[in-house]
Design a binder for these strands. Structure first.
Lengths: 339, 339
DNA sequence: TTGTAAGCGTTATCAC
DNA sequence: GTGATAACGCTTACAA
């Protein structure tokens, strides 16, 4: 076998004494049309030559690329991975493949990768980024490429959205903290900027604290500045008060950073309440365990693909545009209030 | 603009009053050959029409697909992700894109995804799986597709390998444990089966214990059976002895499982020594911190791509075949021996 | 500097 | 049932 030459449909046709068309039919969806004898000959020849249809050429002609693209802001975020896992499974079940691009939160890479994905003519796009290449995304939608936004809405543009039910999540967190006896809260989030889900969580937190008569402070802080965050938490804990305090972390990365800081400050989990959005491998292991609101990541991922394939939705109704999944509260020792 | 019709090179050519060739040249690597004026016309037309070259068609003709495939056994394993991050970066730097497939440790999916990747005519393949579709892999190599094995060797087949220096890692672990005063060890690994790196680690552990006159036990255990593992650890800890005991975990997933078990058993980290291969986010947070041997995941990922691109290596020399990266010891409280 | 024409490997359309 | 033949969108000799 000549290794420099990938065998093509023509090679098989010749070897089987058949036409390209027949071979194509054999590997396509019209195998039954072929006589049993021809099928056998083609099968043998293909097997012999190790033939495998070239998906690129296939895509070029009729069918689409059978490729779904996924744009991830931070592939090292366990949440992204978990969702990606759901997306991938769903893709597989539909005979689609997944092209994943990680942007490392870099707007330049977002644009670049978006271009890349469309260059490969992906048939659908799952986008999970915080930056805003709004213009580019809009263009894709105009081109008719199915698009699902993960955990983020586009302000001037109504695309399909799948993600956590942010309001519900915050409500559950507040209810839990209140029930456990905490009265002074600090909500820690990355800056909302244009990330709509961060905004939604923050807003609900504020109105929710008011409604429950909780003293709810807020700290929006890029995670890079660890010292500032540490100072903010130290300040919060230092204020003298008679009612128990708790921290609410807006996502898993923050929970990690905050846990480190609390440990460095020598705070005892539980005495200082701690609850985070996103369940992580290790939350049960640290001290008395960290209470979390687990996102149904698998369901979110699968749902994203489903919506991709569902065709144009009625984006005018709220239900048509966004699909919000409920979190699951996993109560652990970090919210066992001593009072 | 007609959304049902993606604009092609011909559309641009017409709009610019130029030929397909010129447009192709403009978007290819021969832009300089065009007169400034023509360049301008093409640029305008393309911009106007929102043209973007079809990478699929491009791949079909001359150049390759510019696609690198990566096969991952378990995408939820942080190690895999970390390596993947390195792979992806390296790809990007070389103008390549990464098609990632997760097999969830399922041999059927391994085969399936392997076929998929070759159907897309990936120009190289980074494989990180424990199963053995050896026959398929061999075929790919024969076809001349560059292939790099991550953290695993193929017995009957010499392909390029990139991964941890297993012998060194085990040596470092043993030296550390010995220096810290532990004398009785239990090595916990998933069954080596045909995963060569597991075998290598195990073997070195055994010879290393002997050389150091340590009592080194071994437990090979699929992670699914948590109860059995728990029993094994309980048994190990129960044996009366006067010398301190320590556990050595062969990878990050095991470290997680073992940490959970130790916690459930009420063992105190440090009193019972614990060291694991693979650094994880939370290792500093649990109890006094867990000592680990961090793998240089980024370097491993980048190296994999580099070797992919390096062309055929001399696989006959050990250096040509395998590239082994040294781990980094991160000492924490879990190996602070009280004795 | 620019254009013409022949593929790349496949599928779709139409004949036999 | 089976097979020519023309696309698909692009690159690349080869001409001009």
């Amino acid at each position: 076998m000549n290794p420099s030459h990938r065998t093509t449909i023509l090679d098989v046709a010749r070897a089987a004494g058949a036409s390209k068309t027949s071979v194509s039919r054999y590997f396509g969806s019209e195998r039954q049309r072929l006589s049993g004898e021809l099928q056998q000959r083609i099968a043998d020849a293909a097997d012999q030559l190790g033939y495998q249809p070239n998906q690129l050429a296939r895509s070029l002609k009729g069918a689409g690329s059978r490729l779904i693209g996924m744009l991830v802001a931070d592939i090292r975020n366990p949440f992204s991975i978990a969702v990606m896992h759901g997306v991938e499974q769903a893709c597989r079940e539909h005979g689609l493949s997944l092209l994943v691009c990680n942007t490392d939160n870099d707007p330049a890479q977002e644009r670049e990768h978006l271009a890349l994905l469309t260059a490969y003519r992906v048939e659908g796009l799952v986008v999970n980024i915080t930056g805003s290449p709004d213009h580019e995304l809009k263009r894709l939608i105009d081109q008719g490429i199915p698009l699902v936004l993960l955990d983020r809405e586009l302000t001037d543009l109504n695309a399909k959205v799948v993600g956590l039910d942010n309001a519900l999540a915050i409500d559950m967190a507040l209810n839990h903290l209140q029930a456990r006896g905490y009265r002074e809260l600090l909500y820690i989030s990355e800056p909302p900027d244009r990330a709509s889900s961060r905004k939604a969580r923050l807003k609900r937190y504020q109105s929710g604290c008011e409604a429950r008569q909780l003293r709810g402070k807020v700290r929006c802080q890029p995670l890079e500045d660890d010292a500032a965050l540490r100072q903010a938490i130290a300040d919060f804990l230092a204020v003298p008060t008679d009612s128990p305090k708790a921290l609410l972390c807006a996502n898993g990365k923050i929970t990690l950073a905050v846990t480190r800081i609390l440990q460095a400050l020598g705070a005892r989990l539980g005495d200082t309440g701690l609850i985070g959005i996103d369940e992580l491998d290790w939350c049960a292991l640290v001290g008395p365990g960290i209470t979390t609101l687990a996102q149904p990541t698998d369901a979110i991922g699968r749902d994203a693909v489903q919506r991709l394939l569902a065709g144009p939705a009625n984006l005018d109704t709220p239900e048509g545009a966004a699909r919000r999944h409920a979190p699951i509260l996993i109560a652990r020792g970090s919210t066992r209030c001593p009072a």
